[in-house]
Nucleic acid binder design. Structure first.
Lengths: 249, 249
DNA sequence: CAGTGGTCTAGACCACTGG
DNA sequence: CAGTGGTCTAGACCACTGT
């Protein structure tokens, strides 16, 4: 379960968060940490790699690692689940169910979910609330296997997190691709969110896959323009951000 | 310069791009690659780490690594430079100079650039074009040291890339933080981009720092809503994406 | 110059996959 | 079951930093 390098990373992360290693300070050297924990240098380096991937520290040959700042980053699961994200920022998540149907996929859905001809999908439309205020319209297509589970969940769970329940049922969300663009509110968007048509919305197209890269869901989420922003850290060494020439349809 | 693990990573990346390892196929095992190149297994693993960070492959205990797809990812420098990005998608970049001034920073600029009291900034406003069409308004504040160089560049370079010239002059851009949100076009935005006021724009706030995390520039870029989208790959293991509760001012 | 991180080697044991 | 990736050790040499 918990490995040594992960425990070292957690300890360092905690030290950054609690002020032991404030932003701008230097972390202990690899050899010092290795000796202190009775670990090999390579293991300590694995721990540092985790923190660097989170944008918490930077490193240069010849000097100890520099602390950049406390953890702003949210975990994959917070990014994936609206409910968890809401909880992490101290807001109360809410849901207004709009529709759940089982139907034939559109061409776009079939392509993004890599469906064989003839298979069906479950399509869920909901309005998500933060402390009672509508902030996002969610339109998600689930592959049939997952959608069958969603049917049972969404029916009775009220404002519960679909993501959390699916994970309890053994569904593993491993990778996601998020495409963010600006869009003008359509009539239905405006009605569901309680804003004027043509208001500026932030659109997130999300495709989530399992550990073997098999698609699980494909979602078109539209946020109020002033309700949300997405932040990315990148560096010369590691980056996952792409700027593409146009929103993918 | 070029290290063994980077050469291995490049070779594997090329194999994925040219069809030797098509999406969905499995890569050679660590031990096989190690033996074939006379390298240690740890070195091969370093190479795989690079590809995984780019979202090109996934791995699970017990099976060979899976090829996810060809490289969609753009490099840090393409993300950082509009001109390089334009070139990478086959468009001709253009620039319309609006203003370059040396002045006192606003409070926000002073904070984001970590300025000492009394220092000044250079503020550059430009309209960026793709194949002659205005697609983005760029408003960038440079720290004084960099701005002095920008003054010379922007004056005579025409449609040349400021970023590329700064790098030739020895400025090293190492980290960046991008925050993306939706915003309504203000009067000046609408005029510069040739759209109606209140159109939906995609706003990118960008803060770029050097290898020691010292701020170099802080920019507010506003794209036509249908001109651009940002895409992020993330996974349970590595992610750099944040969803924050509100646009940072 | 001593200290540091970057790279690389050559082993080891384990948990997991798939036939 | 053999093969694979995940973790970990214990070394080594180098380039770079800061004094």
């Amino acid at each position: 379960m918990s490995t040594l390098y992960r425990r070292l990373a957690d300890e360092l992360r905690a030290g950054i968060a609690n002020g032991t290693y404030p932003p701008g300070s230097r972390l202990p050297s690899e050899s010092e940490l290795a000796e202190r924990h009775g670990a090999a240098r390579g293991t300590v380096r694995q721990a540092f790699t985790v923190l660097a991937a989170d944008g918490l520290i930077s490193s240069r040959k010849g000097t100890r690692r520099l602390v950049l700042g406390p953890a702003l980053r949210q975990s994959f699961s917070q990014l994936h689940s609206f409910s968890r994200w809401a909880a992490s920022i101290g807001e109360t998540p809410g849901v207004r169910m709009v529709e759940l149907v089982r139907r034939e996929p559109t061409d776009l859905e079939a392509e993004r979910l890599e469906l064989s001809p003839g298979t069906r999908i479950y399509h869920l439309t909901r309005v998500r609330l933060l402390s009672g205020r509508p902030v996002m319209v969610e339109r998600t297509a689930y592959v049939e296997r997952i959608g069958a589970l969603v049917g049972g969940i969404a029916a009775d769970a009220g404002d519960e997190s679909v993501t959390a329940r699916l994970e309890e049922l053994g569904v593993v969300f491993a990778h996601a691709e998020h495409t963010v663009s600006a869009i003008t509110a359509e009539a239905e968007d405006a009605r569901l969110l309680g804003v004027r048509p043509h208001s500026a919305l932030l659109r997130e197209l999300r495709r989530t896959t399992d550990p073997d890269n098999r698609p699980l869901e494909w979602s078109d989420d539209r946020y109020l323009g002033d309700a949300v922003a997405f932040t990315v850290h990148n560096s010369v060494r590691a980056s996952t951000l792409i700027r593409s020439s146009a929103p993918s349809r």
